[in-house]
Amino acid sequence: MSQHSPTPAPRGDRVRVALVFGGRSEEHAISCATAASVLRAIDRERYEVVPVGITREGYWVQVADEPAALEISDGQLPEVPGDGAPVLLPLGSPDRTLTVARPGEVPAALGEVDVVFPLLHGPFGEDGTIQGLLELADIRYVGCGVLASAAMMDKAMMKTVFASAGLPVGPYAVISDRQWRQDPAAALDAASSLTFPVFVKPARAGSSMGVSRVERPEDLARAVQEARRHDPKVLVEQGIDGREVEVGVLEGRGSTPPRVSEVGEIAVGGGHTFYDFEAKYLDEENLRLTIPADVPTGVREEVRRLAAVAFEAAGCEGLARVDCFYTADGRVLVNEVNTMPGFTPYSMFPQVWAASGLAYPELVEELLALALERPLGLR
């Protein structure tokens, strides 16, 4: 065997976990930062970790188990290096063995995988694509299945699911690629019927990529064009006079209902008009997280109730973060469900669970336990 070929450590009684991160979406760097945090937190006595990165071009490669190389540092965003050994997936293979191959070498077994932790954000990962791949290979994985992942990634479809479940949502309009190409003026007219300000978003992106706050109808077309640089399908949401609050949801064990965390609230300063990408990841000193959120007890319980209903209505498994609005007139509206939320120790999802008594390493452990309990096949 070549000196460059990997030699996995003896497995023993440890569970082998493949952490998959990076990916082709614009949230590639955030996925890397999430992976760094999980690598630091996972119990190495119980789990043998196999880091697998997906480059921005979509190549699967073996990555060194070095969390520091994957962190956001001094404003610099990390990425999966493209020089790792290519990883071959076990499509349909009953032994669930990953293989690595280098040019001119005999492929080498990396080891059988018990569970995959797909730490991918955005399209080509969080949207049901990798979930379908793992379902085909009969490999257990952390998080929501194909349908829930796909439906919750598409904010327009998400609103449809919420409405069918009787969940309260704010006014919105959808501009499809076909509508925009056929008659952009008509598409803008439909969106202009909303009360301004509005938020214009790519329908299938996260981390506030391509999101614009629009104060005047004459600025709407420019915002739609900006959103379309990220996704040809665009969502326009009416601005809500209120506060955004968030909770984390964990799947129940066995037949028990979902578990909902304490309610948190994020306030931004430093000139940010909303919780945009820079505020989330590059300007943390101007963020203020309040857990529990300073809202009436009845409101806190209503947020938690609606979050559990949204989790079940979407068919979520494993985990989700549910974002709601607490309006100035006292209502609670469901904004969105994120099936693979930011997962650094400073992200809202781990923080609300820490405030609820589940520390970051314990949260990672619980997610892996839920995945390992899940039956293969249709559920």
Rank of each mutant, 00 (worst) to 15 (best):
V17N: 00
I175R: 03
V63S: 01
L358N: 02
D329R: 14
L98Q: 06
H230C: 07
R102F: 05
E226F: 14
A41W: 13
T339H: 07
S207E: 08
R229H: 09
L363M: 09
L333R: 01
L167V: 11
P90D: 06
R140D: 01
A185Q: 10
V198N: 03
V52Q: 04
A68Y: 11
Y47E: 04
R379W: 08
N335P: 11
C316G: 01
L70H: 03
F277S: 01
V52T: 02
D323I: 02
A9I: 13
M348A: 05
S255Q: 13
Y47S: 06
H272A: 11
A69D: 07
D127T: 12
P184C: 12
E285W: 03
E244P: 13
E278H: 15
R24E: 09
G170Y: 03
I291H: 00
L120C: 08
I42Q: 06
P10N: 00
K201P: 08
W180A: 02
P292T: 04
A320F: 07
R178F: 01
V263R: 10
V260T: 12
A36S: 04
C316W: 02
V52C: 02
A85C: 11
R11A: 14
A163S: 14
A109Q: 14
Q351G: 02
P51N: 14
L19K: 08
E246T: 15
L289I: 14
F124A: 02
Q225N: 11
E317Q: 14
L235W: 03
V146A: 02
G22N: 11
E237R: 09
M1Y: 10
M209A: 06
G53S: 01
L220P: 04
G132M: 05
L119A: 06
L77P: 00
G58Q: 10
E112F: 00
G315T: 11
V161I: 15
L363V: 06
E317K: 15
A137L: 06
D241W: 10
A165G: 15
E301S: 14
R181Y: 01
L119V: 12
H28V: 02
L368R: 05
T97Y: 00
S255K: 14
L77C: 06
G53Q: 07
A41M: 15
G132A: 13
A186Q: 12
C32F: 05
P292N: 08
Y172C: 03
E262A: 11
I130Q: 04
F349K: 05
A307V: 12
T7M: 12
Q351K: 15
A156S: 14
A68T: 14
Y141K: 11
Y59P: 00
A41N: 13
F162S: 06
L120F: 04
A320E: 11
E79K: 04
K233D: 03
G269A: 08
G170E: 01
L368M: 07
G170H: 08
I139H: 00
T297H: 12
V334H: 01
T55D: 06
P94T: 11
A109D: 09
E336Q: 06
A307D: 03
G330F: 05
A227G: 05
V249G: 08
P361R: 10
A108F: 05
V295Y: 00
L39I: 04
G122E: 10
D138K: 10
A293W: 03
V334Q: 01
Q238Y: 08
C316D: 00
E312R: 15
